[in-house]
Write a protein that binds this DNA or RNA. Structure first.
Lengths: 140, 140
DNA sequence: TTCGTTGCAAACAGTTTGCATGCGG
DNA sequence: CCGCATGCAAACTGTTTGCAACGAA
């Protein structure tokens, strides 16, 4: 996502491209999985004075624009990541907190079955599976 | 879970069976999926003066005892449900908020694959799948 | 000048902690 | 009497909202 195309998307809706919005989107891309607070810190490393409120509002806006997605990993803050990338399922280790990504294709059989049997359409881009990663399993 | 066996479990750890603890556990069983606040309200319908703090502390205790489990359904409060019942996966409709339950067996192929390929042990009792239920799909 | 955007402060929801009281064993 | 358990108030985290000021078109 270049600054100019972001500007174009915003202009279509009568909105402006501001330094804050550009930096926040860049931060989400750099960080991969980031909470609003993490994004806030990353942005502030570059420029001072960006408010956490703006981060929240901008992340919401970027999600409306389809540029980022958010997921709820266990408790606490949601994490944002760039959209447009391949969708992925999150593997969250409850022991060390690490987040791995996985191809959602492995869930397709399950999704098909839920659609047929339960009439439920799973949003595969929004799935988090909790468990214990190999590293933590060893040291138990 | 009878009051006497709950009492026994508590005594094993040097803890007491109080009316609050008994009522809170009963409420979780009655409600099925309940947030701490919902439990609090349910308990207060029976007896006045039970503090929300006590609900939090007791739910945590009951979870340590293995009597209840909690899951994070999207944002906001966690929901508690009785353990010991069959484990189940939650199907959460993002549109109407309804919660259906599902046999986690449908996830076993996925879990096996993750264990073999990624060395990741999924906690099937803790899975929530987000999407749209049939009812909401119709009215779109 | 208009209106989107921001920062600040305050409100807000959910949760946790410290502390004094109180009751059971 | 000892120590678990509770209630209350206050702190705390994460998030949202109201409002005035700023600045680009």
């Amino acid at each position: 996502m270049s600054a100019t195309s972001l500007a174009a998307m915003l202009r279509e809706r009568g909105l402006r491209l501001t330094p804050q919005r550009q930096l926040i989107l860049e931060a989400v891309h750099e960080l991969g999985h980031a909470t609003p607070e993490t994004v806030h810190n990353a942005v502030r490393e570059r420029v001072a004075g960006v408010n956490i409120t703006t981060v929240y509002r901008t992340l919401e806006l970027l999600e409306e624009l389809g540029l980022v997605n958010h997921t709820h990993l266990s408790h606490g803050s949601p994490t944002y990541h760039p959209a447009g990338e391949d969708q992925h399922v999150h593997l969250v280790c409850r022991s060390c907190g690490s987040i791995e990504e996985m191809d959602p294709a492995v869930l397709l059989p399950v999704c098909d079955r839920l659609r047929d049997e339960r009439d439920f359409r799973v949003d595969v881009g929004h799935v988090s599976l909790f468990g214990v990663c190999g590293k933590c399993k060893e040291s138990e």
